[in-house]
Design a protein around this nucleic acid. Structure first.
Lengths: 225, 225
DNA sequence: AAGAGCTGCGACAGCCCTGTTTCAGTTAGC
DNA sequence: GCTAACTGAAACAGGGCTGTCGCAGCTCTT
């Protein structure tokens, strides 16, 4: 019954909570309707223990969503959107977000939405995102008459799309497949990453480049080199 | 038990099937985990009847997905991708798809995926889509070195994003909200639709323009008028 | 008008999931 | 080492949903 611990948990209990949350993400990502039992099993714990730590299934999902949202906010912040050059910050943040979203696909997905604190974090993240885009707009890299909210949505959509391709089960150098790196050699002022002409894709930095590039310039032909 | 009728259904039974499918889409779109009972009620039918027409919940969802996939394919075909000028076809198809997807949000969503026949139709649709994009590429409107699969994914993502905004509960002139039509006055060779400078958005044609425009040119500043 | 088809109603069995409780045994922390 | 915290095991009540049946009554079809 004690699910909102007044005092800190004991070390082993803390470990259990961690294991449960991680397992929940893993299991629910593949099977959104998974049972508490399945989650417990994946966490190496009994169903009883799961209920001891999370009052209800909803509480578990909420905790998961909140944790993931926090990591997402952290990913943005790690790009230093306030201090770094806007395009650099956008690129870094994008790469970070790709990493986080790949690892917390369920917790950041629609199925986990509706969680109160998580929703507020997401709003805040969206605000920061638009701020950053605004700074880029001031540089003239985004059209002056562009609707930044639309830009943000396009940006979000592309991030989501990129993560649909390969399941990326282990976050490792997964099965390649059909990768050709279409519009490489971007004109953005970011650091290296584009080693030469052909990027292997799949790695967050290359994907981030592709996303930012596509958002800014689309897929049409470039004016000039 | 007779769910794959050898002979045609009677008129009233046919009507029931229609009503059930329509209700299922309506109900499941808002509440993916809805009960057979809720679907039946929304269809003005008893739960028993639903089970009489569809062997199981899965069978119902499959039928729904298949029907919607067919309508989607039809939406593409109505753009005359083979005969019309590629950009015109793309614009028309986009507008049609927006209409279909708005009306069959659940049946075309991820929750309804996994249905055998529907999946094959979606593959075919993707093929047609890439074909059309290839024709546009030959015109030089898409960069020659662009990965068409990536272009298709970006295109899909934007279509999906556009439909997230307003729920569009009744398909009517719903509650407007924050609409500003960012990068309007596209350079595409489509017909009118852009009445002047300010488009009201929300209507499929205007949204299609926006999508196509963004896919091709991104949100960056235009070279020149 | 007659018969086949379809529907609503009510009820049933079966299943799975959630959430709780108790108790004995183990583990962390002072 | 002692105590409090934590866990596994087992069982329980409760609830909901699915899928099926039989029957009486309505409605389409010819």
């Amino acid at each position: 019954m004690n699910r909102t611990p007044g005092r800190p948990l004991r070390a082993d209990a803390e470990r259990s909570v961690r294991a449960i949350l991680a397992a929940a993400e893993r299991v629910l990502a593949e099977h959104p309707g998974a049972t508490m039992e399945q989650i417990a099993e994946a966490a190496g714990v009994t169903r009883t223990t799961v209920h001891r730590r999370f009052a209800s299934r909803q509480a578990l999902v909420d905790a998961l969503a909140t944790e993931a949202a926090a990591k997402l906010a952290e990913a943005i912040e790690d790009g230093h959107p306030e201090t770094a050059p806007p395009l650099v910050a956008l690129h870094r943040a994008t790469a970070n977000v790709l990493r986080v979203k790949a690892a917390w696909g369920f917790a950041l997905g629609p199925a986990a939405a509706g969680s109160e604190p998580a929703a507020r974090i997401h709003e805040e993240v969206a605000r920061r995102c638009v701020e950053l885009l605004g700074r880029i707009q001031e540089q003239g890299v985004i059209a002056a008459d562009a609707d930044l909210e639309w830009v943000r949505r396009v940006y979000y959509a592309l991030i989501g799309e990129v993560l649909h391709g390969e399941p990326a089960h282990g976050c490792g150098p997964a099965t390649a497949g059909t990768a050709a790196a279409g519009s490489a050699t971007a004109g953005t002022t970011t650091a290296g990453t584009t080693t030469a002409g052909t990027t292997t894709a799949l790695d967050p930095d290359a994907l981030a480049t592709r996303i930012v590039d596509t958002v800014l310039h689309g897929v049409g032909p470039r004016p000039a080199g």
